[in-house]
Design a protein around this nucleic acid. Structure first.
Lengths: 181, 181
DNA sequence: CGACTCATGTAAGCTGTTACATGATTTA
DNA sequence: TAAATCATGTAACAGCTTACATGAGTCG
């Protein structure tokens, strides 16, 4: 149930239309909870129906017209309730680790290139995050909002660092064995 | 599409019934791709229909009777193909980071306890992994299977370590501010 | 026999993904 | 005015979650 709450958070930060939200998900909130525009539109409809958000008056409700949404008090309350509630961390689900485990049984053919490709992707993501960090969180500032949002970004950075480290380990381990066939 | 392949891997490691698979998912493969028994039974049905696995003869097909499955050559081929194919890493989706971001907007009430709870859970998981590591991968052995399976386990260990580090950072950051109200 | 556990399954609902549809606005 | 782009959707499907159903064996 994170998507509606991610949307509420985004709308509290700044009232937006569906497409604007989609863009912001692509470059900010979506780093931690990705969503497509179809999901977002569907969710906006539900949130409006539940009375958590409303379309700003003045915007034409027609198809093809922008529609700005803002959060209503009930939406803010819902978000606060959700953020403070107890939620267990979900068990991990990572295809790459499953594939590595499969490789342990059937052989490692073709896997090396995959690992190198993933390594490059994670390095690129790390670079993106680092760029945001030095731009948005220069040393010295520390309002509460800043500190918490910086913390979230640090999570992304450390997670990418984990992958880079693990993939490097994995490539080393594969390197020790001769080519498969 | 990881679940069927995780099941194929598990069945190659050892032919099993649905419930046995469920148990093994709970304590081994499922650390990296969790699944409930309903998912597993449904998937077993599909895999059998596709000709990737078969029920071992001799087992009664009745309800309430054990049914052992084994992987057929087509299943092994499918797994090899999948493991070597290119698959992009999925964008991250983590509710806790979303909640932290929400907290940046609406305040951190109640979040501290949640973070401490998660920290304890991750420490426990790390302890579980470390236990498996010292039991199943004592220093000195290094068959290929062992090395790769150890690598997967190291992934779990490093990921839990990441969370422990990040949650500690987060609690430090929250600690700097006085209680909310 | 009654309760409990083992083992396999069905059904409904929700979330996420992919493909497509449609109106409005801009630009060549 | 034709094409491209912006903006909002609809539809169909696949996967996951939760709750429930059913038969078989075991133990008191």
């Amino acid at each position: 149930m994170s998507l509606p709450h991610a949307i509420l958070t985004a709308l509290l930060e700044k009232p937006s239309s569906g497409l604007e939200l989609t863009r912001r998900f692509d470059r900010s909130i979506g780093y931690f909870w990705s969503a497509t525009h179809q999901q977002i539109y569907r969710e906006l409809g539900k949130l409006e129906q539940q009375g958590f958000i409303r379309a700003l008056p003045g915007a034409a409700p027609a198809r093809g017209q922008k529609k700005q949404y803002e959060v209503l008090p009930a939406g803010r309350a819902e978000l606060a309730q959700w953020a403070a509630a107890g939620q267990d961390p979900k068990p991990m689900r990572d295809p790459l680790l499953v594939r590595m485990r499969a490789a342990a049984v059937i052989g490692t053919g073709g896997l090396r290139a995959e690992l190198e490709r993933h390594l490059a992707l994670h390095r690129a993501q790390l670079a993106t995050y680092s760029g945001i960090e030095s731009k948005d969180f220069p040393p010295g500032r520390d309002g509460e909002q800043d500190r918490l949002r910086h913390l979230v970004l640090r999570g992304g950075i450390e997670l990418e660092s984990f992958w880079i480290g693990w993939l490097t380990e994995a490539l080393d381990a594969l390197g020790e064995e001769p080519a498969e066939e």
